[in-house]
Amino acid sequence: MLAAGIDAAITVFGGFGLAMRLADDKTSGTYWTYVAICFFGVSFVHHVLGAVLFRATVGKFLLFTRVVREADAGRPRFWRAVQRWLLGLTWLPLQPIWSWLGNDGEPYEDGCGLRYVRSKDLRR
């Protein structure tokens, strides 16, 4: 949860910061359009490219966790990382409903053939 919180903070602050730089002196509607585009852009770069290039987002890196393929613990492939990112975008708004229904756990755990593992377990 801490890694997800760090990653969310990066997306929120990065998205707002980038939108403020790009939408300087624009109307309110244009500003919020920039905010939405920047949120998705920062989130995509952070979660997809970070996973593919470094096997981790910043939050996962700080907590010594890596994203690997479930089958062979290899580096995630681009399209699998994109699928996992899109799956996460659907999970975020559905999480309160899932909890309200009394379900435990995360229905998307190990989604798209990718898993989170501790860094020290990869060395074995």
Rank of each mutant, 00 (worst) to 15 (best):
L92S: 10
W100T: 13
A8V: 11
R84L: 05
V82C: 13
C112I: 04
L87F: 11
S28M: 13
Q95N: 13
L89K: 08
V42G: 03
R69Y: 04
L92H: 03
G17S: 03
Y116M: 14
F78S: 10
E109R: 15
L87T: 15
F44L: 05
V67M: 12
K26I: 13
P107S: 03
A51G: 14
L22F: 02
T33R: 12
Q83H: 09
L63A: 06
D25K: 14
G5V: 06
R84M: 06
D72G: 08
L62K: 03
V42C: 07
G29S: 10
T65L: 15
L86I: 11
T27W: 04
G88A: 08
T33L: 14
R69I: 01
I6V: 15
L94F: 14
W32V: 06
H47K: 11
V35E: 00
W91P: 00
A23D: 00
V48M: 10
L49K: 10
W98N: 05
K120F: 14
C38P: 05
G74P: 12
P76L: 09
A19I: 01
T57R: 09
F44C: 05
F78K: 04
R84H: 04
C38L: 00
R118I: 00
D25R: 14
Y108S: 13
T30G: 08
D25V: 14
F64H: 14
D7R: 11
D121Y: 10
F40G: 02
Q95T: 13
F78G: 06
F54I: 12
C112V: 09
R118L: 07
V67Q: 06
L62Q: 06
G5Q: 11
A73D: 11
L63H: 00
T65A: 12
A4T: 12
T27F: 02
V48D: 06
F44E: 01
Y108I: 15
V58A: 09
G29H: 03
R55H: 11
Y31H: 02
F39Q: 02
V117W: 07
R118T: 07
D110I: 01
P93Y: 04
A23Q: 01
L101E: 00
G17T: 05
L89F: 12
L92A: 13
L92N: 05
R123H: 12
A73W: 15
I97D: 08
A9C: 09
R118Q: 12
G41E: 02
W91N: 06
H47W: 08
S99G: 03
L92K: 05
G102T: 00
F44S: 07
K60S: 02
D7V: 01
P107I: 13
F44T: 08
V12F: 06
C112N: 01
C112K: 01
I37L: 13
W98A: 04
L53R: 09
R123K: 12
S99E: 15
G29D: 11
H46F: 03
L62E: 04
I97G: 09
